[in-house]
């Protein structure tokens, strides 16, 4: 394979085309992404609480040092006692199908919509 050169000027055109495809895809996908309506909180895969995204609220599962919040139609983990804080660092989620997960506490925060069809 040694005969190939590292870079040709026309590579820039190809890179341009690839980025164009990405931009077109971005706007092509956008209409299919629906905002969610409800935030579900799952413990061990079972829904333990459903919060309406249209109402600001906060929730903490019984006996756990974890706090959830719904604000401006978005939901998030406010705080958690887990060591890695991946759940808190996920930040706000509001699109249908998006999830924030806290593996140490076996908790999942999931955005659900009106219908249950998988998006895309």
């Amino acid at each position: 394979m040694d005969k190939n050169v590292f870079f040709r000027n026309k590579d820039i055109i190809m890179i341009g085309i690839i980025i164009m495809i990405a931009i077109v895809l971005y706007f092509g996908i956008k209409p299919f992404i629906k905002e969610g309506e409800k935030a579900e909180i799952l413990l061990d895969g079972k829904v333990i609480k459903t919060l309406d995204l249209s109402r600001d609220a906060s929730y903490s599962p019984e006996g756990m040092e974890v706090v959830f919040e719904v604000k401006d139609g978005k939901a998030r983990f406010v705080s958690s006692d887990c060591p890695d804080k991946i759940c808190v660092n996920t930040g706000f989620i509001d699109k249908k199908g998006q999830t924030a997960v806290c593996l140490p506490n076996r908790l999942v925060l999931r955005i659900a919509g009106g219908d249950t069809d998988a998006v895309l």
Binding site: Y26, I29, A118
Partner: peptide, 28 residues
Amino acid sequence: LNAYAYMYLPVLIVSGVVMGSITGILLK
């Protein structure tokens, strides 16, 4: 995990261009 991951496709294509260039240059 979830069918929703395709949402990231455009972002990951652009990221592929950037990271692919960097690793290509590093390889050289």
